[in-house]
Design a protein around this nucleic acid. Sequence first.
DNA 1: GATGAATGAGCGTTCATTCAT
DNA 2: CATGAATGAACGCTCATTCAT
Lengths: 209, 209, 209, 209
Amino acid sequence: MLARMSSTPTFKRLPRAVREQQMLDAAVKVFSRRGYHAASMDEIAEDAGISKPMVYAYLGTKETLFIACLHREGTRMMEAIVGAVSAELPPDEQLRRGLRAFFGFVGAHRDGWTVLYRQARSEQPFAGELADMRTRVVEVVATLLRRNLPVPAEGSREVRETDLEVMAYALVGATESLADWLSDHPSEDPERLATRLMNATWPWHPPSK
Amino acid sequence: MLARMSSTPTFKRLPRAVREQQMLDAAVKVFSRRGYHAASMDEIAEDAGISKPMVYAYLGTKETLFIACLHREGTRMMEAIVGAVSAELPPDEQLRRGLRAFFGFVGAHRDGWTVLYRQARSEQPFAGELADMRTRVVEVVATLLRRNLPVPAEGSREVRETDLEVMAYALVGATESLADWLSDHPSEDPERLATRLMNATWPWHPPSK
Amino acid sequence: MLARMSSTPTFKRLPRAVREQQMLDAAVKVFSRRGYHAASMDEIAEDAGISKPMVYAYLGTKETLFIACLHREGTRMMEAIVGAVSAELPPDEQLRRGLRAFFGFVGAHRDGWTVLYRQARSEQPFAGELADMRTRVVEVVATLLRRNLPVPAEGSREVRETDLEVMAYALVGATESLADWLSDHPSEDPERLATRLMNATWPWHPPSK
Amino acid sequence: MLARMSSTPTFKRLPRAVREQQMLDAAVKVFSRRGYHAASMDEIAEDAGISKPMVYAYLGTKETLFIACLHREGTRMMEAIVGAVSAELPPDEQLRRGLRAFFGFVGAHRDGWTVLYRQARSEQPFAGELADMRTRVVEVVATLLRRNLPVPAEGSREVRETDLEVMAYALVGATESLADWLSDHPSEDPERLATRLMNATWPWHPPSK
DNA sequence: GATGAATGAGCGTTCATTCAT
DNA sequence: CATGAATGAACGCTCATTCAT
């Protein structure tokens, strides 16, 4: 029904949403490969099979383009994790599954999220954007941790809120670091890595798997 | 105040070694503030109170200049840590003091090492340099960890080498992450942070301080 | 005079091919006037009435730009000579006409080929390019010379191949030198110069013209 | 009397003339190897084992330094040729010996005169200097040629002065060209080359050697 | 809607040249 | 006499960004 009968192959003009995804694909690829500054709009446009002014028309400047990449990839990662964690599970199982999902995602998108994230962290203009994302992650993790602590033995020192935040930060940092480790050990299994981290950090839980 | 207006005009024809340090100071400052790419050799030279050709004459290109910064700051950090850890101390005390020294150093040089390190991680040309430093740190930490594990209860599962490496990586990542957290919470005490991390990660040890 | 004030403003958004020629014109002019090193890309761009990035976009770096100049001018010269020489003519007439065409070309493009050629000879990066052109010319000349020798009298010493190559080189060198002489004597007639060289070098042929 | 009795080895300070020759040696070497523009005063000073300000104190700017090189090498070449030619010899023998001496000199100083000369020809600032040298050479050659022509047969066309100048230029150009050819054929004997050029250009003379 | 043509601005780098010691 | 220290001035090159078609 959309089929025009005109002589020229009218379907070349893709709808806007599709074009935007193509551009973001190309941008993620190039930003990851070259780094934010070394990436050139020319290469991104060429890789997307589109002319440069189109990129500007759809996604704005280089900076907004990068932010768009960041959001898309960040959201995808979040969804992967959230999709793996059900609120009905016991807290430690939530943690375990969340870690698995994260390592799995990073392993499957080796040139995506991790690299963009690292780029963003080192460039001032994106500090704000990143702080937001990170905060959201830390909050989720902190919540999980709170429900996941060993029952404080008798009157021993109790864990306070700031400690929780510190632990959450530490866990996130540890996880990022292991994501890098994973990059250097491609033969390792993301699943096993999640288990290892769990066992190492919460030795009071029964080993999983 | 004291002895201002000294005998020489103090502002010109300084010996090479002095100028090199001035340049490195300026470079560290500008690289931290702007990021590697956004930093301009002009600004670095101006900040060092010297003309650009001098920078090139003494420290070479922008890339070698950055590496020189990295080495100087990295070495300073390493020395701060090594100076705080004595081999005679029990392993867990070594770890504790090493962490304290690290956080203390990061806290005292807020715009130095951490930022440079982050920069370097996100630029390919410096990946190699950094990987070396990181590997050395991980090895040291892994050694400490090996001597620092809880005595494996009877026949329970034993910790293998790979687990150790993973733990070391995790600990280093957690520490780096907390170094960032420290940058965002300038009012926090580096000493306390080290304690918190120890308590959170090795709850089976008696709390320190 | 004729059809000035044509329909289009004439000064912007020209198609690539046109702009490339404008750039090459400007480049030849500036390279000739200043020499390869002293010529600045700024001046070339300005002279072409275009911004510098366009020059880089179309013709590449300074080196490739110079080579492009060399090729264009060299090709034009070759065509001028080839167009003047018919294979049906007797060999000595071919030589005579070739010389005339060469001197005519040099005389008509005083600041073009000769100067570029001299520049190229003195810069290592272009040694290869030029050696090729020169070799081709020498081969052609050697062939002509071979067919153009006086019939060796009875048993007199015969001319060997190496001698031919040497003669060809000598003739080409002599011709180049005279092209310079022509630059210093603008009032001289290129036609007469060719005749003079012929008469001086092959006195056994009947004088032409 | 100049001998100071001081404690330091006073004789390290070489007399000015010696130092100048060292500098010129270095300059000739570097100019030949790199070309006029690519040669740096730094490299020349270093190669001469002397500091840069000394070079400026003794030989002035880069331009005057190059001219000094040109003069020294040009004079050496002239002396080599003049030393080989005696006014008592028959004209054609003078020519023959002059060519031999020239090719011999060029062959022995492969990186000296020829390269400097070529450099100078392609840079405006040295046009004047070179024109002078060349004129002197051409005049000598023209004189030799005048005495060296075949006795004009009966009433045939006579050779005029301009023809002589043209011939001299042609011969000089041919010779330069063959000097290049010699560079590409290091196994060839400069002596034989002189003979070949003579035989080719003045076939009416009895072959020499 | 889509693009080839075009540029302002800036950066890393080098070099001839000169003080101050 | 001799030099290490220092710089002004350019230059080649690139890039994000925008017109005009």
